[in-house]
C-alpha cells in the first residue's frame, strides 16, 4: 500500500515535470510569458487602487482584503493551471477517446490525465499571488495559512473541474458546461462577495464552490477562525472523494474512439 502510494507519487511528479519541461523548451519565451502574465495581473490592481482612492469600503472589503481576494484568485488559478491543466480539458479527453493510453498503464488514470499538461505561464499568477500577500502585510503565520488555504482552494477547484468534466461520460460533448462552470469561478473570484446576496451567494457555497476557494480564506487571513479552517479542510476532502467517485462511475461508460491521434 505504502509503496504503491510512493510509486504513484513518483509517476505523478515525473508527469508534471515532463509536462513543464515541454513548455519550457524555449526558455526565452517562457520568461517573457511569465512577465506578461504578471503585468496583465498588475493592471487590474491599478483599477482597484483608483476605486479605493474614491471609496474606502467596497462590498464590505478593505483594500487589504481586496489584495488578498486577488491573491487567492490568482494563486488558485496559477497552481491549478500550472500543475493540473488537463483537469480543465477532461471533457475533451473523454469525448475524443484520449483516455486509452492512460487506461493501459498500471497507475491512477485520473491523476495521469490531469498532470499530463502544464500551463507554465501560470507560474506568473502564483508569483503574483505572493506579491499581493506581501503588499497586504504579511507575517510568518499568515504566509503559512495563505499557502495552506491556497493549496486547499486549488484542490477544490480541481475537484470541481473534474466533476464538471466527468459529465461528458454521460452526456457526450458537454465541454461548454465545464468551460462555463470553470469560467464562473475565475470571473466571480475577483469581486468582493459583499456585492452578492441571496441565490448567487448560496450558489457560491454549493454548486460553484467559490466561497470555500476565495471568500472564506480571505476572511481567515484577516481574522483566524479554527472552525472555518476545519470547514475548508472538510470541504476539500469531501469534494476530492466526490470527484473520484463520479469520475470512476463515469469511466464505466467511457467509449474510447477511433480517431488517429498523438499525445502532443
Amino acid at each position: 500500500m505504502l509503496t504503491e502510494v510512493k510509486n504513484q507519487l513518483k509517476i505523478t511528479s515525473l508527469s508534471i515535470k515532463y509536462a513543464i519541461m515541454r513548455e519550457m523548451l524555449n526558455k526565452g519565451t517562457f520568461i517573457m510569458k511569465v512577465i506578461f502574465m504578471l503585468l496583465n495581473d498588475a493592471s487590474f490592481i491599478v483599477q482597484w487602487i483608483i476605486l479605493y482612492s474614491i471609496k474606502s469600503d467596497i462590498g464590505g472589503y478593505t483594500f487589504e482584503q481586496i489584495l488578498l481576494l486577488w491573491g487567492f484568485a490568482a494563486g488558485t488559478f496559477g497552481i491549478t493551471r500550472f500543475l493540473f491543466k488537463n483537469a480543465f480539458s477532461l471533457s475533451d479527453h473523454i469525448t475524443n477517446g484520449k483516455l486509452d493510453c492512460y487506461l493501459v498503464q498500471p497507475k491512477n488514470v485520473l491523476l495521469s490525465i490531469i498532470t499530463g499538461e502544464s500551463d507554465t505561464e501560470a507560474l506568473g499568477d502564483i508569483i503574483y499571488a505572493y506579491i499581493l500577500l506581501f503588499i497586504s502585510g504579511v507575517t510568518l503565520g499568515k504566509l503559512l495559512l495563505f499557502t495552506v488555504l491556497l493549496i486547499a482552494g486549488s484542490i477544490i477547484t480541481i475537484n470541481f473541474a473534474i466533476i464538471l468534466g466527468s459529465l461528458s461520460f454521460w452526456f457526450g460533448r458537454s465541454d461548454y458546461i465545464a468551460d462555463t462552470g470553470n469560467g464562473l469561478i475565475t470571473n466571480f473570484a475577483t469581486y468582493p462577495d459583499g456585492i452578492f446576496s441571496g441565490i448567487p451567494k448560496a450558489l457560491m457555497y454549493s454548486l460553484v464552490p467559490i466561497g470555500f476557494i476565495i471568500y472564506i480564506p480571505v476572511k481567515l487571513i484577516s481574522e483566524f477562525n479554527l472552525l472555518y479552517t476545519i470547514v475548508i479542510l472538510t470541504v476539500t476532502i469531501i469534494t476530492t472523494i466526490l470527484a473520484f467517485i463520479i469520475f470512476y462511475k463515469g469511466l464505466k461508460k467511457y467509449s474510447s474512439s477511433n480517431l488517429m491521434m498523438s499525445k502532443i
Binding site: 515532463y18 519541461m21 493510453c101 491521434m261 498523438s262 499525445k263
Partner: peptide, 11 residues
C-alpha cells in the same frame, strides 16, 4: 495501438 501514441513527443 498503431493509430494512437503513448509516448511523450518532446522527450
Amino acid at each position: 495501438f498503431g493509430q494512437k501514441e503513448q509516448l511523450w513527443m518532446h522527450l
